[in-house]
Design a protein around this nucleic acid. Sequence first.
DNA 1: GATGAATGAGTCTTCATTCAT
DNA 2: TATGAATGAAGACTCATTCAT
Lengths: 220, 220, 220, 220
Amino acid sequence: MPRIARNVRGTLSETRRTQILEAAARVFARRGFDRATIQDIARAAKLSEGSIYNYFRSKEELLVHIPQHLVRPLFIPLVEGDVPETLGEAEEILLGVCHGMVARVQEYAPFLKVFLSALPHLSPATREHYMQLLPTYAAERLERFLREGIRRGIFRADINVEIAARLLPGMLLLFLMTQEVLLVHPIVAQGYDSIIPEAVRLFLYGATPRVLTPRPSATS
Amino acid sequence: MPRIARNVRGTLSETRRTQILEAAARVFARRGFDRATIQDIARAAKLSEGSIYNYFRSKEELLVHIPQHLVRPLFIPLVEGDVPETLGEAEEILLGVCHGMVARVQEYAPFLKVFLSALPHLSPATREHYMQLLPTYAAERLERFLREGIRRGIFRADINVEIAARLLPGMLLLFLMTQEVLLVHPIVAQGYDSIIPEAVRLFLYGATPRVLTPRPSATS
Amino acid sequence: MPRIARNVRGTLSETRRTQILEAAARVFARRGFDRATIQDIARAAKLSEGSIYNYFRSKEELLVHIPQHLVRPLFIPLVEGDVPETLGEAEEILLGVCHGMVARVQEYAPFLKVFLSALPHLSPATREHYMQLLPTYAAERLERFLREGIRRGIFRADINVEIAARLLPGMLLLFLMTQEVLLVHPIVAQGYDSIIPEAVRLFLYGATPRVLTPRPSATS
Amino acid sequence: MPRIARNVRGTLSETRRTQILEAAARVFARRGFDRATIQDIARAAKLSEGSIYNYFRSKEELLVHIPQHLVRPLFIPLVEGDVPETLGEAEEILLGVCHGMVARVQEYAPFLKVFLSALPHLSPATREHYMQLLPTYAAERLERFLREGIRRGIFRADINVEIAARLLPGMLLLFLMTQEVLLVHPIVAQGYDSIIPEAVRLFLYGATPRVLTPRPSATS
DNA sequence: GATGAATGAGTCTTCATTCAT
DNA sequence: TATGAATGAAGACTCATTCAT
């Protein structure tokens, strides 16, 4: 049935690949990589088993290609070219980044589940391939954001940018992992509307009391 | 060959079960639940395949029983009864907590891998059970630590303790997950000796300059 | 792309068939019948898989039809109408026949390999079909050659022509099979230049010492 | 059902291997390597498919191991230590050798079919291995036979023994191959009872008329 | 006629589980 | 209780053949 129009050559092929990968992602998410069968995926893609092999060489290749097709949107930069001019602006931006991150993880939770359970046991090559994409991508943007902020005196000059850019996402990760991926009852009743501001504030101002607000005489 | 003294009836049985579960945990960690075979486990336990079925009804039952035996030590408190008296002391303690956390994850990485690979097979109830242990346990201790610190004026009074107690572990989680569990090349060359102080400092003092630096009408 | 001039109706079809059969023969020779895929053959013929089925009903049909096109030259008579007048002449002719046979087997070795490996598993009808062609054809010529030789007193009158006509080719067969078809290191270092004369001499004069060479009052 | 007694450890295993290899040889002979299925072989061995893999790692391994178990008897010498004292004795012996050869090929025809069908899949090394056994073995014995005969003046002194020892088996090969292995209707109606004497006579006396018949005190 | 994507039956192989000893 | 051979269901993957375009 899925005999698709001819003219669109090349596009058809791309369409099929997407169709298959989307099905694979759904099935992997539901059953886990090892328990998902090609037949499951074929059915989900409304294709025959054989057809899948016209587009991908193996089941593992399906897994490897899922992010390329499906998760790409996951990596559309959260922090565009935004450069913070004031601290308030920085806070604004970071709140936005965090909300975006949460929304995205929520949206892609099923896939992330597969990802987590399958990855540790796949070939090192496959693992590397994935990891290049995932947290790195997000972090690189944040690094630039921090660097710009430092240049403008908004952030401490002695921050290790490389590390700090991963600390903020990390803060949310524990919540996201447990609630969205592992599907455990909410840890914190208030939800992300409380968590995110708290995280951003901690990230910007720390846990210790500001000295009378940044106003008067130095650190003393 | 594993013919163990008979007298200890009941205990022998318990010994065998432990012997098998420990082997299973090792194998699951190395290969993932679905890829681990009963033969693998039997060999690791220095028993025959058939014998395993004298103690457990199925492969899945092995999985369910693992934590009871092996994971308990993972939850020995990181933050004992420590109560911080000064900021410096607090910093000291947090550094210790973080180092402990890293060490423990490194030690239990294999088990965490089992946990992840097993996810698709765990019932929601079992998942809950695990998660109650894992980050919750650690967090509860930190909550008390923060509350005491607030009472002593070391920490901001407006901190949401419940959340903040999870933000610090979270900060490290991203590094731990990628490096220890997913086994990807180190993100940050310097290793945890750089990461942990950076995280603690950020947690305590935030990313913005302390007072008097930010001098000139910061936000203004 | 293989759109060939139309006018030659019927001939075009024949061209295509030859094109396909030649490709099939090459592929069969390289991979063996069962391991050769239609895709292999299609590629070798620079056609699509589907097109092959416009000319042949099945893969097996390809095999059956190969000799008709390709092997025919294998059967161009080795022994033309030659009639031996003297023993010396007969020897001359037989040497020529043997050299021709060797050359041909060497040329067609790849095909013979397919033939040998595929044949035992084909339908009896197909097998008969092949066998009519192969050794029979060659033998019939030799039979006439022998009969003429006997009539002229060159060969023993009590020879069973039918059998003897197959004994000479047989002599070479062992060498050809092992060296050309099975590709084993040469049995006899000297090569066919030693083997052929030896075979012909044995065929003509046998292994026992001639009594004073054929000198005296012949058989008469 | 094939649960065999325990005590014979090691022997049981060997028994099973033989049982499987014999079944495999039969099936390969009937269907060819590629067309034989593991299920066929399992059924022929009265075992389940899975059991086969307890003894051999793959289908190909079955092929490689067949000769070791089954073909050995094929190579029990045809020409014992026999040394011909007179021409008549030599003829006697050669007739015996030929009959033995035919009988053996007939007996092992199924295996030879396996061998042929498997050819494309054998590594050059394996092919060599086989071929060392097959015609070489038989030929070596004949070589000695001929040498002894020459020393006794029974055979021509100018015979190339190495070659001649392969010409006699070769003579029969064409018949054997076509009739026993390729299973084509008999070429020569009379069967081997005519063919063998004809071949031996041709080998000994050649196709040309004897001068005065071998009169002069043959061995004498 | 030519194409090549779609199909699905058929294969090898793995592995949890059973059970005779 | 321990063993490990036997089992057979299940799954990844191949490929001859069909057929819409």
